[in-house]
Design a binder for these strands. Structure first.
Lengths: 229, 229
DNA sequence: TCATTTTGGTATATTTTTGGACTATTCGAG
DNA sequence: CTCGAATAGTCCAAAAATATACCAAAATGA
């Protein structure tokens, strides 16, 4: 498709091409781009031209030129990706889960299979053995919600839920969350998880979604309760 | 184009290859990668080169090198944003919107401001002038749903909706979608958009959410109708 | 337990690659 | 024509890659 026009490409053009490749992500951070002599051939330009282009890109901060070594990408493609997720506040996260997970329950009823449900109930059992261990419970809980997402067979949803789960596990406020996870709260969660499973097994999408809403409401309450202390 | 040239690969190149394998998930956590001497042969490089690459990856935290034992992956697969989103099917996308957007409406009622609503109604007006121009309508429509997300003030949700919007505009099946966008369908959408706006303005979260569900159901119908032809 | 093998760690001399610098020439638009 | 840009060629020094050898820690198996 990219009919390499054997038109004459100036230094500015080549700089633009490489800049675009970097922004696009085809060339990632730390990647080494081909030697000047090779670039000269592939772009059909003289080495001096390539050199001008690269020098310019270096001044712009897109690449780093190391003598005797090579030219390396020194620019992160697009930071918006991780930023939005990593900078999300606990409340933003809760709202997002509120949007996603009830519907995930409905889809689980539609697309889930027995093996999915078996796995989820296995996780329920594991969580029920963790009433005294908030950390272990939290891990199993994340896995449970991930397994629920898996059962939808929707790659996009699975990915989103997975991302949210990663934030939950990484952040500082996870510790805070563990503080709120007393044995009583864990027992409440466990009951709700079982109820959700039952509703999914009996193919009642709306009931499953509603219990999930309750579940998330419970979680939100303990969250706000924790942030008040 | 991905012709693995048996050209000489530098340490930086090899590091990049392995880094990608890990980010991609082909090499998972705790996996042991082949001995340096084997890697040297498979990559057609000297052992010293491999070693430099691995040392670098260790400093970056991608692998852990244990003397006498081997080199092990020590990094979770990268959240590859684009893959999950770009490979999403139209139906997966619809299901995800079904999960998100009704709740977005509820949050818009809670957190939205007048200026947000003004902007959305401006977009409504723009869409109503596009009954004969599917492409222009589609653009405005994406902007509308994006503006709706903006009004939630939830950075995470905004980002997700934004990503989904990008897919909608890029893909091939967008063309197909344009085929289904006859003047009648567009008029239906416009009515629904106005209804959603009214419900939000009058602070009726559930009503807004329900109309959004209807709206998405309409969209899903025209989608399945299109895929049957 | 103990010997063997495997694997990473280190060192070094040598060759190849790569960017840096300089120059004379060619090309094209104003 | 002139001037700026691109070209083509050369040489240099730094960096990287190679090839080889030997060591020590870990894994393996009898």
């Amino acid at each position: 498709m990219t009919a390499t026009q054997d038109q004459k490409l100036g230094a500015a053009d080549i700089a633009a091409l490489v800049r675009r490749e970097i922004s696009k992500g085809n060339l990632q951070l730390h990647d080494r781009l081909p030697p000047e002599r090779v670039l000269a051939e592939t772009y059909g330009a003289a080495r001096g031209t390539i050199r001008k282009a690269l020098t310019r890109l270096e001044q712009e901060g897109y690449v780093e030129i190391r003598a005797g070594s090579g030219t390396y990408v020194a620019h992160k493609p697009d930071r918006s990706t991780t930023d939005a997720i990593e900078n999300a506040t606990p409340l933003e996260l809760m709202d997002t889960r509120f949007a996603l997970e009830p519907h995930v329950c409905r889809l689980a009823v539609l697309h889930g299979r027995h093996t999915d449900f078996d796995r989820m109930e296995e996780l329920c059992t594991r969580m029920e053995a963790c009433t005294e261990d908030p950390v272990a419970f939290s891990e199993a809980d994340t896995e449970f919600h991930r397994a629920l997402a898996d059962s939808t067979r929707n790659g996009l949803l699975i990915w989103i839920i997975d991302q949210i789960g990663n934030v939950r596990s990484e952040d500082d406020w996870t510790r805070m969350r563990h503080l709120t996870l007393d044995a009583q709260t864990i027992r409440t969660y466990n009951v709700q998880h079982r109820q959700i499973m039952n509703a999914i097994r009996t193919r009642e999408p709306e009931r499953a979604a509603n219990i999930m809403k309750e579940h998330l409401e419970t979680a939100r309450l303990s969250l706000t309760r924790a942030s008040e202390t």
